[in-house]
């Protein structure tokens, strides 16, 4: 493995509430090379906040601290807004959850993709147009000229998510964070979208952080997996070795996964008393 793309050490994200600050990420550490890392966890486990803090997108009054948060040697926490803007999109990008909400309703698909590109590169109109069409083809959209002129409400969820991917990959970033990229989609198109992400990430040698609550999906598309619970990493393992997981939370999640042809009437419920101190 080459030198790490991303180093995270003791990352903490907290928000003030009426009863004092609440930490949603409590000392997360990991390093990422040009590989595919999956972060799995239930709702509220802090996985999305981890993704957003890498992009420094936690808005005030949220607070991010870390002993180390370095992307290619750049200290993310040290960067000012202007320096961050040069990194966002261009070097680290993020595919969001639901294209129904994450695409601007009053801009055409083409305009939104173009914006992602021209924010970082000065290009002629013709060239921009060509890059957009190429990118749309790369995410397997067959008639890119027509789709580029559509508004988000005129496309399906699966197509919306492919447009999202096109938009996030067009400036050719080195790291892509995919935050639940398929949880708003029909099962039938989930694999299609993930295949596209997988294909493009592998082909361009990018790093990928796939955030999901779906263990099976993450183990299929990632090299390494972090299992998060209540703001902490409870398990870290290679995707193939998930069945050898140690932590009771991971074991519980695995046990709760239904298998085709099984005869269990009832799936087991997580017994949180085994690990949770709170």
């Amino acid at each position: 493995m080459s030198s790490p793309l991303l180093e995270v050490e003791n990352l903490r994200v907290s928000f003030p509430t009426h009863s004092g600050r609440v930490e949603v990420v409590k000392g997360l550490s990991f390093t990422l090379g040009r590989e595919r890392l999956g972060i799995v966890g239930e709702s509220g486990s802090g996985k999305s906040m981890t993704g957003r803090s890498i992009l420094k997108l936690i808005r005030k009054p949220g607070e991010v601290t870390a002993d180390k948060l370095r992307f290619e040697g750049i200290d993310i926490l040290d960067q000012n807004e202007k320096q961050m803007r040069a990194i966002r999109g261009a070097r680290i990008s993020m595919v969001m959850q639901d294209p129904k909400f994450s695409l601007n309703p009053v801009m055409t698909v083409g305009e939104q993709i173009a914006e992602a590109l021209v924010t970082h590169q000065k290009l002629g109109r013709k060239e921009v147009q060509q890059r957009i069409l190429d990118m749309l083809v790369a995410v397997r959209i067959n008639d890119p000229e027509r789709v580029a002129k559509l508004y988000p409400h005129e496309v399906s969820g699966g197509m919306g998510q492919r447009i999202m991917i096109a938009m996030m990959l067009i400036p050719e970033p080195e790291l892509l964070i995919a935050d639940e990229p398929t949880s708003a989609l029909d099962v039938s198109v989930q694999a299609q979208v993930l295949d596209i992400i997988d294909d493009l990430v592998t082909r361009k040698g990018m790093g990928l952080i796939l955030i999901s609550h779906d263990l099976a999906l993450v183990s299929r598309y990632c090299d390494r997996i972090l299992v998060m619970n209540a703001g902490r990493v409870v398990e870290e393992c290679a995707a193939g070795q998930l069945d050898k997981a140690q932590h009771p939370y991971t074991r519980g999640l695995l046990a709760a996964m239904p298998v085709i042809d099984e005869t269990r009437d009832e799936l087991p419920v997580l017994d949180r008393t085994q690990w949770a101190g709170t």
Partner: peptide
């Protein structure tokens, strides 16, 4: 607070444009 405004920030769009183009236009 809409997701597409965050999308614009993820793209690295300057805050002025985030506000006027992405939040104000709708």
């Amino acid at each position: 607070s809409q997701e597409f405004v965050t999308t614009a920030r993820v793209k690295g769009v300057p805050e002025r444009i985030v506000i006027w183009r992405h939040a104000f236009n709708p």
